[in-house]
Design a binder for these strands. Sequence first.
DNA 1: TAATTTTTGACACAATAATGACATATAACC
DNA 2: GGTTATATGTCATTATTGTGTCAAAAATTA
Lengths: 223, 223
Amino acid sequence: MKGIRILVAEDEDKLREIVLKYLYKEGYQGFGAADGEAALDLWAEKKPDCIILDVTMPKMDGFEVLAEIRQTDNVPVIMLTARREEDDKIQGFEVGADDYVTKPFSPRELMVRIKALLKRSGVATTDNQLDVCGIHLNAEEREITIDDETINLTQKEFEVLIYFINHHKLVLSREQILDRIWGYDYEGDIRVVDTTIKRLRKKMNDKGECIQTVRGLGYKFKE
Amino acid sequence: MKGIRILVAEDEDKLREIVLKYLYKEGYQGFGAADGEAALDLWAEKKPDCIILDVTMPKMDGFEVLAEIRQTDNVPVIMLTARREEDDKIQGFEVGADDYVTKPFSPRELMVRIKALLKRSGVATTDNQLDVCGIHLNAEEREITIDDETINLTQKEFEVLIYFINHHKLVLSREQILDRIWGYDYEGDIRVVDTTIKRLRKKMNDKGECIQTVRGLGYKFKE
DNA sequence: TAATTTTTGACACAATAATGACATATAACC
DNA sequence: GGTTATATGTCATTATTGTGTCAAAAATTA
């Protein structure tokens, strides 16, 4: 998994640094470019495995850079767009971006997208297992073991747990969970979330305590 | 937490009103000041989350105002400069402006800058961490650690603490705190503030002393 | 010391979450 | 297809926790 190189082209210094910091924490090797031309240079020099490309940049915008790159390289590209630039999304896809992320985004979300894209592109070895605080998750086989005991989760329980693990330490509101697992168009009572978590906790025994309630806000997964 | 408050100090009435209108449309709470002195008064009274400061104003110019503010407040500031005033830009940065926008500008551009700055400053955030005197605050995870010990705060306690930290070294009156956290329309007893601070101090152990009482005026957060 | 202001603890009640019991939907099996 | 088992959703009840009020005690100031 090591040695994966990712180029981050984003003119806003603070944001670029945050992303690079997160990449570092995830074990990637990150390079930063503050404008389109620098991005092209770095791309030529480093031949990264993945590129994060802001749409609005000085000197050359994201699309121009992407077009240039695509003439010779199929490297996976994620475009960063401001919300207002909705139309750009489509344009970005046409030009050949592989994914897009709308600002503002959480660094964590971007990391998830990167991982997914790398996997899709066959860059990363499929690492579909996850261990968090004694909980072993094998998404492929859809199996959860806690302290070597396999536990049986229903579909909803499983999805909620994965969502929690993928966003551990973050406070997730009932709305977020509902939107994500049940879908935006879900019409029922939001308290399904409570009930599902109740069942999850019970099946997880002691580890149920990892799902903490944050009064007034939602839940948080944490050791 | 109630709305984000933005102070607009600009002597040209028309421009000021336009900016305020846009702010309103974006959901911010805007205050207008027509000269430097009025700006300082409003700043002291409202403790805004962000300030838009025109360089050329009657009574006190933008730099004087900024210098005054910076003695006690780290609030993010955007300076408005005329094209001719290029040099001022640098001066503005030295004095401690966080960004500048050159006139003429489109209101939309200003909004984008404001948003970006608020995000950078941790007011409305992507990456949201803060360290002050051994207190580590992570708003995204909604977690406070003091000397690596996690402490559990309720909603009100948490909001009050954030308000203090974001305005550290400043004396905050009970009214200000009440207005900000409980909202202007709060009808109850102002002494809730005392009680909430009592609880905060207790949970913070030694660090509780960071919240100092300023007799007759209010409270102040300081090491 | 008296007057003023703040701190504190006790209490009430409001807000929120957990739970159990039941109803309905879905899948699995014979 | 009918029967059973399992999963999922609803809801009312109970339990828990947060918040606000108040008055007495403590601290500060004049």
